[in-house]
Design a protein around this nucleic acid. Structure first.
Lengths: 335, 335
DNA sequence: CTGAAAGCGCTTACAG
DNA sequence: CTGAAAGCGCTTACAG
């Protein structure tokens, strides 16, 4: 029945079978109301018979407009990036937009290469979570003329649209919360990745709060975002006799891992050590004891973000939009 | 400096600036060793000056070979799908493969439409996690002539390559574990999604084990894969006075949510209720008490899967490979 | 309502 | 070492 001679059917094959010109097949697909009823029927039958699937690359080449949305984000899926990426992928899929996923590495050269890749596919929109933009990256975005959306961090000077919260302020509030509860030696555990935009602004917020609190000693520590590294962190601090009063974790996974290690090692939380997480995913709520963290509407970031992406995909030349969502401290049982 | 007249630079623009033919520019990009040194230098200078980025769609159209890998998976990123997808995305990105992400919905029609979309982009490989394949989907895969990889479930009759474990056996082993510990009324809480392949085979395994255990009463219950629904499940069962002896959870998130609800409601685990999870992500280990679950090498599935995808992308006509990874019960403190 | 012509941006042989 | 010709699979005006 179907053409089995080694290649997938093309529009020309359908046209031949249905006894029409390729143009008519194209029209039957894109504007069927302009095609005579029985012509349409013949074409549809031929399509069904052959299993024809239009080549999206060829289509996009002509229309100069793709339905691809390129999403660059840190690879970790168990935390806030996974949560947003899940909501975003679902929402955009409903609008017929295809998500191209680019993991962000720790190398500037690789991030720039990834940006080049992204731009090379002529996506409708480029979305970035939590990456610092280098000069070449900005230049590529400019030359590619692709609408650009930053998620998670609110930045009034963003190169494109953005939907997020003020991360500097958020880290400051959480630190102030710890100070107000009387903790004097506070350690901020974070990835220390200078390419992670959230990281950079959050560190500033932490430092601000420490500087403003006389007598409070602040430290920072590098830790990879995983349960295991959170647990290991506590073990190391304990072994070195360097356990602080309070631990502020940039990653929810680190907070959960640290909490579990404390339970195992008999460290009283929050009596001996307070634990506080910045991302505030569902995980911190489900933990026991529940972890003090940031209260910000993840769902709203994804929702408004999806809306903005959809809008820019439809109207690439429309104005940018910058949306700041509110964040506050959600006190849990660990502080 | 750069061309600012409303469109991104094309190869022809570079050719003009460098005083060569477009072909030479193309060659400079793909096989620079065939181009004279100073010609190359002129071309590279023009590319740098203009910020030229080759159009991947146009390139792929000619080469008939794209570097896209289409990945269809349930949207939930906090569980096993997120973990695999993270590892896979990173590994494939290192090989220069681009991941197109398609969330699986609960509607057959939508899944088939998604499959059509996927095939339309002429990906190098199509990867599916945990979806039943309908007749039309199989037909599309056949016509598209795209190599196909199934992950997570080992199926000797898979249409393509597969890397996974025997889910029927796994669910049976976990249920037998519960039976051997003396639990008599066992409830299997799962998404009840008939389109989820893992779900279907796991349910069979559960039923097998119950049928083989005289005097043991098995039930099944529908629950969405989230922390909140896991917690709600316990609340409902308690309110209806239908709490079983043991709960087998298809989703790790449900297990963690249920565990937390038990703690909150004063239900003794494992004394009054045993909890057991099937996916066995890191989450079950980090929970407290640690949750009995499946021990299977997630990383190996991702690693071998990535290898197989890479191989099929390079040699689309090579033989299929079916790899079964072993799984066993990892006893925790909840049974 | 349908089709002949031209072209999207690139690459693949082939000729020189 | 470089280029003129043809074509990948589709669509966009335009003409009839």
């Amino acid at each position: 029945m179907s053409d089995d001679r080694g290649r997938r059917p093309r529009m020309a094959d359908i046209a031949r079978e249905a006894n029409v010109n390729r143009i008519t097949v194209s029209r039957a697909l894109s504007r069927p109301e302009l095609v005579a009823k029985d012509t349409l029927k013949r074409i549809e039958a031929a399509i069904a018979r052959s299993g024809y699937i239009p080549n999206q690359a060829a289509r996009g080449m002509k229309t100069e407009r793709s339905r691809i949305v390129s999403l660059a984000a840190p690879a970790q899926m168990s935390g806030v990036y996974g949560a947003i990426s899940e909501l975003l992928t679902e929402a955009l899929h409903r609008d017929g937009l295809i998500i191209n996923h680019f993991p962000l590495t720790d190398s500037i050269a690789q991030r720039e290469a990834a940006m080049r890749e992204m731009a090379g596919w002529c996506p409708a929109v480029i979305v970035i979570m939590s990456s610092v933009l280098t000069g070449p990256m900005r230049e590529m975005l400019r030359v590619a003329r692709t609408p650009f959306v930053e998620l998670l961090s609110y930045d009034p000077d963003s190169l494109g649209s953005c939907v997020g919260f003020n991360n500097q302020q958020a880290a400051r509030m959480l630190t102030e919360h710890l100070v107000s509860r009387g903790y004097q030696r506070i350690t901020y555990a974070h990835s220390a990745n200078p390419l992670n935009a959230l990281n950079v602004t959050r560190l500033e917020g932490f430092t601000d709060a420490i500087d403003a609190a006389p007598g409070v000693e602040g430290r920072e520590l590098r830790v990879a975002p995983s349960y295991a590294d959170g647990a290991r962190l506590i073990e190391t601090l304990l072994a070195d006799d360097k356990l602080p009063d309070a631990l502020l974790c940039a990653s929810d996974m680190v907070a959960v891992g640290a909490l579990e290690a404390c339970r195992r090692l008999g460290i009283d939380v929050p009596g001996r050590l307070a634990i506080c997480a910045v991302d505030g995913t569902e995980l911190t709520d489900v933990a026991h004891p529940s972890i003090t963290s940031l209260d910000f509407p993840l769902e709203r970031v994804a929702e408004v973000g999806a809306e903005e992406i959809r809008r820019l995909a439809a109207h690439p030349d429309s104005n940018l939009r910058r949306v700041e969502v509110e964040a506050s401290v959600r006190p849990g049982e660990t502080t």
